[in-house]
């Protein structure tokens, strides 16, 4: 369990770096997509009976990713760019 758990947490960390470092909305989305795999690894490493959960999670992640992409389209139509800094969406 130690190795998959470590890999999952590393995946979470890598994805987080992607989310925080990405200026481009799609690059941010790549980070999100990576973090979401962490949970899959932990579920899968626990037991094979979690297969149903994993399958549903994969579908849910795909829907969420598609919604973020639709948002990217809306952003691009409004701002002509996907640069988060330029649109001020991520300035606190």
């Amino acid at each position: 369990m130690t190795v998959p758990l470590g890999a999952a947490l590393a995946m979470l960390a890598v994805g987080f770096v992607g989310v925080l470092a990405g200026r481009n909305l799609l690059k941010t989305l790549v980070g999100i997509e990576l973090t979401s795999k962490a949970a899959l690894v932990i579920f899968a490493a626990t037991d094979a009976a979690s297969q149903g959960i994993v399958v549903l999670l994969i579908l849910v992640d795909a829907i969420v990713v598609a919604v973020v992409m639709a948002m990217a389209v809306a952003v691009y139509r409004q701002y002509d760019t996907l640069d988060l800094d330029a649109m001020g969406a991520m300035s606190w």
């Binding site: 998959p4 997509e33 795999k37 899959l40 690894v41 899968a44 490493a45 094979a48 979690s50 297969q51 994993v54 399958v55 994969i58 579908l59 992640d61 795909a62």
Partner: peptide, 21 residues
């Protein structure tokens, strides 16, 4: 990841991960 799922005995999840994700 799909390969990992397959090794863990979750063939269907592996297929879903490869096709969908």
């Amino acid at each position: 990841l799909a390969a990992f799922l397959f090794v863990e005995g979750m063939a269907y999840a592996a297929v879903f991960e490869a096709t969908v994700a």
